[in-house]
Design a protein around this nucleic acid. Structure first.
Lengths: 293, 293
DNA sequence: AAGTGGTCTAGACCACTTT
DNA sequence: AAGTGGTCTAGACCACTTC
């Protein structure tokens, strides 16, 4: 993919690779000179040659490029969940762009919930430990009372080879290693959710039933803290299905009674799928909350 | 409250007696700017004495006030669905603020899907006639093929007095007038959705089964075009329920088979609820699509 | 007082659409 | 060529938090 800057400017900036001091125009900056000091990635860029002032076919606004650079730093762990990222001024200085451009990049990252701004304090990497984030991925709300996190009972956690359909959803090959988890979530003393989860084997080496059982709190917080895999977004397909024998027993409902089936694929940075989850929800005293806007 | 007056732009004229220069919280004039061009609301400002730039308790950024003014014009029908609203420059001039401030107001309106920007053309009031908008409110997707709108068969459309629970959801009094509609949606030849709908009686005078039947297209497009009521957002509660006798017959499924129950409350401008809808979806060959982000 | 994000302005130029 | 939204910059001041 790539990139590609508007760049033609590559010539100007990178005189000195390391030292950021290279101000392109050496100061002469009339009200409107194209800055272009973007520290673009590989200087290669297709048409390395000339300066086509022609709008390149793959035009990308500066702030999008900055956004990509910041995202890369988030992904690489330069700034970890819960930590503060550099101030807008610092980032502007680092990337040699104006504060306004950095601001627009961060605006989008905040809109995507990758970071959160806090006036007077700074901009922070979001984390699944925060309540706000937690309930973005748990949409089951009790008829009475506040949303809460139930107790999790892990039934199973083992490595196995991906069945065809799971592999397809995870964008890996059939037979590649995956971790399978089965668990029951208990809300207010009632078994309410039966989850069957498949995780990308490569990302979750060392995940055991013990670790899952010992962990108090959202599973995604564990994944983020212990395995460096952060769930960014998810896509769900929801249906009503009858309880089979297994589900009926584990959830204490009659066979054939209606359950909400929620098939989720979760993605991390770069829109790479890392989890497939199939949940069966008892919706007698809870409902799935969704807002259309 | 206090906020920008609708305009009276004249007030800004220098020398105007009553126009205090007191801009509550929103001032940021460049060093050389003439007296605040902001058509500020009047008088209040607590400590009339000295400077006291104390932020008023009801501080609202300028762009939020502009946003509210634009919203009011949308609501009043000054700019109708599908039409173009005035350009940013025009609005800036009308409200006596900078283009950047108008831009930020419109940014938020666009994020809320009240308007849509089209580069080079203008900013347009969104409408339920557009595909993009249509599928924001219809989340049922077929397992195979593209999302589509099915045929609607109206079973019933009558005025009646609101039952207690519907009245509560619509924020009216029990017994107030409402319109009740029952219909079946047909997707690819299969009865897939059974809807029971209650509409605010005051907003839908003259709505009949004939009108509904004759109308080809999304119901919300009819409401918007004929009744001036535009659905802005909705909140849904989703459950799995067994088909009762009526539903089973109308949807051609066995009694007791699992259906997706979708209880929706829809809101128009000002977050006023205007519709309650209870849908029963057959999810054998369709699913409810939802994205968490 | 210092630092951070939040608001506001003014002006320039770019990209897209229409005339 | 003209008009509209989109990007980018530079600078000022405001509001919030922390020292």
């Amino acid at each position: 993919m790539s990139s590609l800057p508007t760049s033609l400017t590559g010539a100007a900036a990178p005189g000195a690779p390391e030292s950021g001091a290279a101000t392109p125009g050496a100061g002469a900056q009339p009200p409107s000179s194209p800055p272009a000091p973007v520290p673009q990635a590989a200087p290669q860029s297709g048409p390395a040659s000339g300066l086509q002032s022609v709008p390149s076919p793959t035009f990308s606004p500066l702030y999008q490029q900055i956004k990509a650079l910041i995202t890369r730093s988030l992904q690489s762990g330069e700034w970890k969940p819960g930590e503060m990222i550099p101030s807008e001024m610092e980032l502007a200085s680092r990337y040699k762009v104006s504060q306004g451009t950095v601001r627009k990049a961060i605006d989008e990252l905040a809109a995507e919930n990758l970071v959160a701004r806090r006036q007077g304090k700074g901009t922070f990497v979001t984390t699944h430990h925060e309540d706000v984030v937690k309930f973005r991925f748990l949409r089951l709300v009790p008829d009475e009372g506040e949303p809460h996190y139930g107790a999790s009972r892990v039934l199973e956690c083992k490595r196995l080879r991906a069945p065809a359909e799971i592999a397809r959803l995870l964008d890996i090959r059939t037979g590649d290693s995956v971790v399978q988890i089965r668990r029951v979530l208990n809300f207010s003393g009632e078994s309410t959710v039966l989850d069957e989860i498949w995780l990308l084997g490569a990302n979750f080496k060392g995940l055991t039933a013990e670790k899952l059982t010992e962990w108090k709190g959202p599973m995604y917080a564990l994944f983020e803290a212990e395995f460096g895999t952060r769930m960014i977004r998810a896509s769900e397909k929801i249906r009503a299905v009858p309880a089979d024998e297994t589900a009926a027993e584990l959830l204490s409902v009659p066979i054939g009674s209606p359950l909400l089936s929620v098939e989720r694929v979760s993605y991390t940075y770069g829109d790479r799928p890392v989890e497939v989850r199939r949940g069966l929800y008892v919706t007698a005293r809870h409902y799935y909350q969704n807002d259309l806007s």
